[in-house]
Design a protein around this nucleic acid. Structure first.
Length: 379
DNA sequence: AAGCAACACAACCGCATTTGG
DNA sequence: GCCAAATGCGGTTGTGTTGCT
């Protein structure tokens, strides 16, 4: 038995609102207010609409001082940093942007902002990848001259295009779909992009987490939101002492691949674009960000090679280690921490030198070589 | 000019939370 | 404390518009 409907669906009009309906609703509310009961309101004023529909129409469209479209850079930044901090809590985000509705912000994020960020991210990645590919090729050729074992393979590799490498063994991963990985990587890409844009995490500087400042005024939020913010701050305080890593947006730096559990799973509360702090250790952040971009792509390529390199345990995927900030939405089921765990749980090569070392031991370690080559777009 | 695809935005739906009796 | 109704919220869908072939 399902929930009783809020209105008589058969006698309720659906679809776009007419100007007449708008005028009726607006006139009534401006004169009498909502009367504290949206359900009975449409009957009172003779509208064949669901009360919920009336409420939504008023809040998202008819209410005074509503702004539509034309989001500024500053608003973009606020949305991005808040999305990083609290996820898709659109009503909270909307509370920080006067005149904006949660629906508007949600639509803006889903249709434009997300793509805008991913576009920038991918451009950066492509440029970076081609730079690395050139170095990689050069190094391979150089080393192949000194390595008899390598010559045949490298010759085949560089001269045949495409080259059909043998199928790699596939290790099935429970409850896991390729498109999920793509979605997660998109989210991870956005996260990286936001870091590149100048955002920072609460551990970036010598600022103590106990004096953690939210980038926004949360005084206008509801009591439950205050609790939510406070609990985030509490988590920060409780974990900061044990966490010696200043850049905890990469919590799985301490990942223990042997048992599939994370090290210190730090919270990922994100600071806004604070002028004073924006430049703090920017270079260091940038380096780490580049590394993360590299690692994300690398793990993804590994997975695309048939899951052979995928080593995260099912437990890691299912449990996650989020500090109570997840929501019930499908999008949030996989948190940033999960993504980091996923990425770092793969046995990866984190620097160029190691890359080359692994690559030149082909054929003993052919899979590593293939993964590298695929990553560099050479296959 | 017609057909199609992509996009933007309004509106709906269902679930969670809050409120009041 | 319990329950039902109301409200709030976020994900998804539907529809109109725009641009491209």
């Amino acid at each position: 038995m399902g929930r009783a409907p809020c209105c008589d669906k058969a006698n309720v009009k659906k679809g776009p609102w007419s100007p007449e309906e708008d005028a009726t609703l607006k006139a009534y509310i401006e004169k009498h207010g909502t009367g504290g009961n949206w359900i009975t309101l449409p009957q009172k004023i003779g509208l064949r609409r669901c009360g919920k529909s009336c409420r939504l129409r008023w809040l998202n469209y008819l209410r005074p001082n509503i702004k539509h479209g034309g989001f500024s850079e500053e608003e973009d930044n606020i949305i991005c940093s808040l999305y990083m901090s609290i996820g898709s809590r659109w009503s909270v985000i909307a509370a920080q942007l006067p005149g904006r509705t949660d629906n508007d912000i949600k639509n803006y994020w889903n249709t434009r902002l997300k793509k805008k960020l991913l576009g920038k991210q991918r451009k950066q990645q492509e440029a970076q990848q081609s730079r690395r590919a050139a170095i990689f090729k050069q190094e391979m050729i150089k080393r192949s001259e000194n390595n008899a074992n390598f010559i045949n393979i490298s010759a085949g590799f560089f001269n045949q295009n495409p080259y059909n490498w043998p199928e790699l063994p596939v290790v099935p991963v429970a409850n896991y779909q390729t498109h999920d990985l793509q979605l997660m990587q998109d989210d991870a890409s956005i996260k990286t992009m936001l870091i590149n844009l100048g955002g920072r995490f609460s551990h970036d500087s010598d600022t103590s987490t106990t004096s953690f400042q939210y980038p926004v005024d949360i005084s206008s939020t509801s009591s439950s939101d205050h609790q939510f913010y406070q609990s985030s701050i509490d988590v920060l305080a409780s974990t900061s002492a044990a966490n010696s890593n200043n850049y905890s947006q990469f919590p799985s730096t301490n990942f223990d691949a042997s048992n599939g559990t994370g090290g210190s799973s730090s919270p990922t509360i994100f600071h806004g674009l604070d002028d004073q702090n924006n430049n703090l250790q920017a270079d260091h952040l940038h380096q780490l960000t580049e590394l993360e971009v590299y690692d994300n792509s690398f793990a993804h390529q590994h997975q695309q090679l048939g899951g052979f390199y995928y080593q995260a345990s099912e437990e890691t995927l299912n449990n996650g280690s989020s500090a109570g900030t997840s929501t019930a939405s499908a999008e949030s089921e996989i948190s940033w921490e999960d993504i980091n765990s996923l990425v770092y749980s793969t046995q990866m090569v984190a620097d160029y030198e190691t890359c080359c070392q692994q690559a030149v031991v082909v054929p003993q370690d052919q899979h590593s070589f293939l993964a590298e080559a695929t990553y560099f777009g050479l296959k």
